[in-house]
């Protein structure tokens, strides 16, 4: 399955994306187009003690865009609720 197809089928799901340059992105898939997948990041910098500044510099509703061509692996992020 192409990364594009995977992303289309899994909108709303938390994933871990590793790009060819070794960068790791964790977040919830919000949307996808032919060139990019957009995620709402789950990011430690905004985590514990990290709030209080201009949260989500990506623009609301868009999320962080990751080029599909840059993706090495994409997998579901283990998740649960208490």
């Amino acid at each position: 399955m192409s990364h594009y197809d995977f992303c289309c089928q899994n909108v709303g799901r938390p994933v871990k994306i590793v790009t060819h340059d070794g960068a790791v992105h964790r977040g919830v898939i919000r949307g996808v187009n032919r060139s990019k997948v957009f995620i709402d990041p789950l990011d430690a910098q905004r985590g514990i003690g990290g709030y209080g500044y201009g949260f989500f510099g990506y623009g609301r509703g868009l999320g962080l865009g990751v080029a599909l061509g840059a993706i090495a692996t994409i997998a579901f992020l283990p998740f649960f609720f208490w």
């Binding site: 919830v28 709402d40 905004r46 514990i48 989500f56 208490w82």
Partner: peptide
Amino acid sequence: LQTLNQHYQ
């Protein structure tokens, strides 16, 4: 989303 992220962290 902020609360979700905090939970995840």
